[in-house]
């Protein structure tokens, strides 16, 4: 699984961090999401798909 994050679209909601805390974090200064791991393992897959689905800015894409 490959995760793509568009920081220009991110609205810093942090929903992705709640869905997949091992894959996403937020910058301290402005809350914009950052990728901790752009090729997470199978155990993180459900959380990452959930993050991509709930991101209110459509900033996360997943490639299998």
């Amino acid at each position: 699984m490959k995760v793509l994050l568009d920081q220009d679209s991110c609205v810093a909601s942090g929903q992705c961090v709640m869905a997949a805390p091992d894959v996403f974090d937020q910058r301290d200064e402005d809350g914009i999401a950052v990728l901790l791991d752009d090729t997470p393992g199978a155990d993180a897959a459900d959380g990452v798909r959930q993050a991509a689905a709930i991101c209110p800015a459509l900033a996360i894409a997943v490639q299998d």
Partner: peptide, 10 residues
């Protein structure tokens, strides 16, 4: 409520 402090609010 976070005001320009998204991460800390979360």
């Amino acid at each position: 409520l976070g005001w320009n402090m998204p991460r800390q609010a979360r």
